[in-house]
């Protein structure tokens, strides 16, 4: 069986038929890879992730997932749709959108209940996730009482509980403190080490190297400008600068101010 999970060929998508969001996208994602999608605001990252999760479908071009073309018709088939939802989990950018149940526990269990997963198995996974993410004290609370970091962890738990083969995350560390960011990175790396495919969109170049072995850079024209090994892409400062991903950075050393590109992957720089 092929190791290809997703294959997109010449995909175009626009909102309301007039605001382009994806333009001529060609992309192949292999099993057990860690892929980061980076790009400036509004470059099409979130739209791409929603398409990979079968929430929107291309205006033209094809999207293949697990060897099957996906479109409205294939998702009308309940057994295909249920099977796809078991295999692909999506963590939304705004956790308030994802946490719609009255309590944290109900939110985490929403997916397995809809997918009619085995109860005993689900409870075992719940216990494991609660321990890993430290959610024990939050289970009976309402999502509106949680901090952003806690909400994000619950949103991740509500996705991981179905034990998907593919985990898609839309800016999972945006607005989080360093400790919570670290925790989330560790969880993603652990899931990948168990053979899961992890696809993440982010602006945060600090974390890209850790959460990806392949990086795709979106340009402002809604096209993927380049896809390649993260070690190569992150060194290509002109490419990152051209797409608003690094900036000129001024700071002080030993009483004098100087300016250089804010180049995250290498933590040391010459002066």
């Amino acid at each position: 069986m092929s190791d290809t999970i997703f294959q997109l060929k010449d995909v175009n998508y626009s909102y309301l038929g007039k605001f382009p969001a994806l333009s001529h996208i060609d992309l192949t994602i292999e099993k057990a890879r860690m892929v980061a999608v980076i790009g400036a605001n509004g470059s099409g990252k979130s739209t791409l992730l929603q398409m990979l999760d079968g929430l929107i479908f291309p205006d033209s071009g094809t999207v293949t997932a697990f060897g099957t073309d996906i479109n409205e018709r294939t998702f009308a088939d309940l057994s295909f749709s249920r099977n796809f939802r078991r295999k692909v989990g999506f963590v939304f950018q705004n956790p308030d959108v994802q946490l719609f149940c009255p309590t944290v526990k109900e939110d985490i269990l929403f997916g397995p209940l809809q997918l009619k997963e085995d109860r005993a198995q689900t409870e075992k996974r719940l216990d494991r996730l609660v321990a890993i993410l430290g959610l024990g004290a939050l289970l009976d609370r309402s999502p509106h009482q949680l901090s952003v970091g806690e909400k994000r962890k619950v949103a991740i738990a509500s996705t991981l509980i179905i034990d998907p083969e593919v985990i898609i995350l839309d800016e999972p560390t945006a607005g989080l403190d360093p400790m919570t960011t670290r925790h989330i990175i560790d969880i993603l790396k652990k899931e990948n080490s168990l053979g899961k495919t992890v696809i993440t969109s982010t602006h945060d170049l600090h974390i890209v190297e850790e959460i990806s072995d392949m990086v795709c850079v979106f340009g402002n024209d809604k096209k993927i400008v380049r896809c390649g090994p993260s070690s190569e892409i992150l060194k290509d400062t002109p490419l990152l600068q051209a797409h608003n991903l690094v900036h000129i950075h001024a700071h002080r050393h030993d009483g004098s101010t100087h300016v250089h590109p804010h180049d995250h992957p290498s933590h040391e720089h010459s002066h």
Binding site: Q50, D53, L55, R82, R85, R86, G89, F90, F92, V97, Q98, F100, F110, G111, Q114, L115, S158, T159, I162
Partner: peptide, 8 residues
């Protein structure tokens, strides 16, 4: 969309 994504 979030409900659909989780199998609703």
């Amino acid at each position: 969309s979030a409900m659909l994504s989780r199998g609703y």
